[in-house]
Every structure is written in C-alpha cells, then in structure tokens.
Design a protein around this nucleic acid. Structure first.
Lengths: 187, 187
DNA sequence: ACCTGAACACCGTTCAAGT
DNA sequence: ACCTGAACACCGTTCAAGT
C-alpha cells in the first residue's frame, strides 16, 4: 500500500477550531480538542500548522474573510447614507451572531496580523466615506465610521452597557450622529 | 513565636500582576510568576484569590480605577466641547501608555464584570454628553462618544490602521465629527 | 508521507504537613 | 494562621518509531 494519505485538511482543522471557538471561547480551542474533532491526534496538527499561534492566525483569517463577505454592500449603492446604514447593520449582526469569532479578530495578543481588522476599513468603506465626507477626508471618515462600529459592538459584547436604555436605539443614534457630522462637514 | 504572619498582601499581588501584564501580556501573568514576584510560592496566592480568574478580575478592577482617575475632568468645565476633547485625549493617552492594561479591560473572556468599562460611560461623560446633545439624549450621546473613543484606540492598539495617513489627525477628525453631529442635533 | 505513543516542560490547583 | 513541597490533571510541543 502507499504509505499514508492525509486523513484531514487545513480547512477541516480551521473549521473545527472555529466551532470550538464559538461554543467555548478561545481557551476551548485546544490542540487536542481540535485534533479529536477532525479524527486525528494532536501531534499530527503540527504537520500543517507550526504551532497553536499559527493555527489561531489561520482561524482569524478565516473569520475575517467571512466578515468581509457578510458586510459587502449590495450592488445598488444609490444613497451613500443608506449604504452606510446597511453596512453598519450587517457588521453589528455578524458580531452578535458570532461574538467569540468577532472578538478574536481584535485580540492582539499573539494572534492577529494577517488580513486583520484592516481589510474592513478597505475599499468599500473608503468609497462610501468619501461619498459622504468628500474624497479628501475619505480615509479619516472611514476610520471614524469603523472605529464607532467596532467600539460599539465591542462594548456591547463585553457587556459594557449596563445603564439600561435601548441599545439598538443608541447604535442608530450614534450612526446618525456620525452621518450628520460627516455630511455637514462636506457641504 | 506567633504562628505565621502574612508575607504579602492583596495589593502587592495585584501590583505584581500588573507589572507582569504590561511587560509580557496576559499570558505572562502566571500564578507562579506573580508569586515569585511577591516572594512567595504559587499555592499561597490561593489564600487571597480563589483562582486565577479572580485575580485577573481584581487586576481589571485596579486598572479601571486608574483609568477613571486618569480621565476625570479638570474642575473647570466651561465649554463642554473643550471638556470632551480633553477627556478623549486623556483616554487615548492612557490606552497608549498601558496598552496591555487597557486591552484587559475589554477582554470579556472570563475576566471583566466588576466595574468594567461601564464606569467609563458614567457620571462625567453622561454629564458632558447631556450638555452637548441635550439632556434627553445624554445616555445615547455618551455611548456614542465612548464607543468611538474605545473603538479607535482599540483598533490603534491592534495595529488596524495600516493604510498610512495621520492617525492623530484621524482621531481628532472623528471626535470633531461627533461633536459637530451632536451639537447640530441639539440645536 | 503521514500518523502515533511516549515523553518533557509548564501551568493551575489541591492538600497534607510543617512552623 | 499562613506557608510549602509534592502531587494531579491538563496543555503545547518534540520525536523516535510505526505503517
């Protein structure tokens, strides 16, 4: 017989890691747990990933790609304000549906640096921000929008909003405040 | 002789943990490392803290208190916009000086829930936000300001701003956009 | 060429035994 | 009343040995 064909794949490993992450947090994604999930022993994982940190980076990349896809705007971008609202809503929905995955994206501690949260403030957001605030301010406006969106959902996931009130309404309020401020400045 | 007087204290332990945190990140604050730092063995720590998670919570509380103090506004709050600028600047300065400490405040994973990032959006911010956006919108305006500030420094610390540009200017730009938006809405 | 058991270093935690 | 060494379970990682 031919000597040993692969019994798993990088994709299966990352998928298993992601499942463990969402159900049990970062500390649940153990080399042993991941290995067993894909039907293999822990040492075998080191054939495909140098160490746990590398696996976690691959996991973060996988999540980042899904977030980018989930947030991508619909083709019909008539009103930039409407497009920003739609993107922000999708962004927040993603974070709330997969809180552990979302948080991993911003856990600097030895994980991030591949595509990272960077690709977020990329093309689409930049374009919309430019349409809203004027092309000269596109980068700064995009960073402002992303900072607000990330900050809000990050605090929301961390349970930082404990003074009651309508959290959904606060998100809308903040977004409208920004849109208003950006638009006012442009005109 | 009297049988065994304390050789350390909760305060000394938390202080040691904080030093280890800032110099080596969360994973460096090990029960053994903390213990040795205060001149004791790891098992002794369990006399004062139920487990590592409890110690980390105490550490987060300690940091939160310092952040609140560092951000507290000067007595002369003439112009609320000026006061917001000053608080935002102090907030960002704290985060940049002690990035690991700051990030621990928002690491939900089994740490946070004591005073948490909550006390931030508390009294002072609420008051200023009300002065800026009108008392009816105080809570939502405060959440918007804090979300932006946290989101921005969080992304900054995570190295998410890789498209170049002036990061300081982007922070100012975002803050002014918010102030403008809040003020426009109030009037 | 891939997989595994065994081993090592390290960590959190418990506990009986010391003073 | 506090401290400690020893022990346990668990984790990441390496590696010689299997097929």
């Amino acid at each position: 017989m031919s000597p040993a064909a692969p019994r798993t794949s990088n994709e299966a490993i990352v998928a298993a890691a992601r499942l463990l992450l969402e159900s049990g947090g970062t500390e649940a994604v153990t080399m042993q747990a991941v290995a067993l999930q894909v039907g293999v022993r822990a040492p075998s994982l080191y054939k495909r990933f140098a160490d746990r940190a590398t696996l976690m980076t691959a996991l973060a990349d996988d999540i980042a790609a899904d977030l980018a896809e989930a947030v991508a705007p619909a083709p019909d971008v008539r009103d930039p304000r409407e497009a920003v609202r739609a993107m922000a809503a999708r962004y927040r929905t993603f974070a709330r549906r997969a809180p552990q995955s979302y948080q991993l994206l911003f856990a600097t501690a030895g994980v991030a640096p591949s595509p990272g949260p960077n690709s977020l403030a990329s093309a689409d957001v930049l374009h919309l921000a430019g349409a809203l605030a004027g092309p000269d301010d596109a980068l700064e406006a995009a960073r402002t929008l992303v900072a607000f969106a990330h900050g809000f959902v990050s605090m929301e996931l961390a349970g930082a909003f404990r003074l009651g009130g309508d959290v959904d309404a606060a998100f809308d309020y903040g977004l409208e405040t920004l849109i208003r401020g950006l638009h006012t400045h442009a005109s």
